[in-house]
Design a protein around this nucleic acid. Structure first.
Length: 337
DNA sequence: ACCTTGCTAAACATCC
DNA sequence: AGGATGTTTAGCAAGG
């Protein structure tokens, strides 16, 4: 267990699930509803939506008064695409089905949003009972811990290793707040790199100059993913790289490591890597990303380490293949179904 | 009240 | 020498 070899991250009191077990990636309730309703409204259905081990078959179950605090109080969830759903009909949609709250928060950017297979026109918005969450200003301090920022920066690097200077640059590029922030934040980054066991220093590449390359310890990777999943909002791409708009699909370079790992037929990726891809895509592109998955695909997001659900490898593999296609990565040797 | 986590500041050493 | 990098310590705030 990770607690034996590293300091737990914020909010973590126990160990992490072993490789292959369900990883812990909570989603805000509002996003859970978004996912479930969007799947339902697009003609698909959920086989199950599970929150904290409780099967949700009625969305009133999660329509509670604490709604406005959704983004701060993430709830564990398991959402599975399937064919035997019993969700409320789409005409019950209100602001929860619309992705406008994400747009309002500048979290879904049109060029990055994958084309839906079956787009259902969003109904006109009705006034929300609860006050909307405060808008996220891209120039405000990001709601991510430094460990998550560093993790994202390293994860986005093609080599999954970055010198400190590049980590600074990535953070500034994606979170302009730091462009004019007091210089102390760089100290915090270095402090985090040194102190956090999730990050490892590797030998400097020739010609790199001073400093070392920093990587994410593979053993602690899922822990960082969990921490990432606990963050209240997905990251905002401020300076998006030019994408192939004709395809209008996610940039396969965005998460090169995950794409490469999922495409690797010689060394099968672990369940946490499938899960990481699903989570990263879902968090980045919003619930609409689920439209891209085949009906039998599973997206499993759960905090419960004791979650003993059994899923066949085929389901995970099909999900991974769907995500691969979504990411624009075609396996050289498609795995047999 | 206590503990954990994260942030910030600062001092210091090392390297280029 | 000066700046960048890396390590360590300390204090504080927030939340459980």
């Amino acid at each position: 267990m990770f607690v034996d070899c590293m300091a737990p991250m914020r909010g973590e009191r126990g160990g992490s699930p072993a490789r292959g077990a369900r990883a812990s990636l909570p989603l805000p309730r509002r996003l859970i509803r978004q996912i479930a309703r969007h799947v339902a409204s697009s003609g698909r259905s959920l086989r199950r939506l599970e929150v904290s081990g409780r099967i949700i078959d009625n969305f009133d179950d999660i329509e509670d008064a604490s709604d406005e605090s959704d983004m701060e109080t993430s709830q564990p969830a398991v959402a599975c695409g399937g064919n035997a759903g019993n969700l409320p009909p789409a005409e019950h949609d209100d602001d929860l089905t619309s992705l406008s709250w994400l747009q309002d928060r500048n979290l879904l950017r049109e060029p990055r949003t994958p084309p839906p297979i079956c787009r259902v026109p969003s109904p006109p918005r009705t006034p929300c009972k609860a006050p909307p969450p405060p808008p996220v200003n891209a120039h405000a301090k990001p709601p991510y811990s430094f460990s998550c920022l560093i993790f994202m920066a390293i994860e986005a690097a093609p080599a999954r290793a970055l010198p400190v200077k590049e980590i600074y640059a990535w953070i500034i590029r994606h979170f302009p707040y730091f462009k004019h922030a007091p210089q102390g934040w760089k100290n915090s980054v270095r402090h985090n790199l040194s102190l956090n066991k999730c990050f490892h220093k590797v030998a400097a590449a020739p010609g790199l100059g001073k400093g070392s390359l920093w990587t994410v310890d593979p053993q602690h990777r899922s822990t960082l993913l969990q921490a990432f999943g606990r963050q209240p909002v997905p990251p905002v791409e401020i300076e998006a790289e030019p994408t192939d708009t004709s395809r209008n699909a996610p940039d396969p370079q965005l998460f090169p490591y995950l794409a490469r790992r999922l495409a690797d037929t010689r060394t099968p990726p672990g369940a946490d890597e499938y899960l990481a891809a699903a989570t990263v895509l879902a968090m980045k592109y919003g619930p609409a990303v689920l439209d891209q998955l085949p009906p039998e695909a599973h997206l499993v997001i759960s905090r419960c380490a004791r979650d003993e659900h059994s899923y066949s490898g085929g389901e995970e593999r099909r999900t991974a293949e769907a995500l691969l296609n979504l990411a624009g990565v075609t396996p050289a040797h498609p795995q047999p179904s």
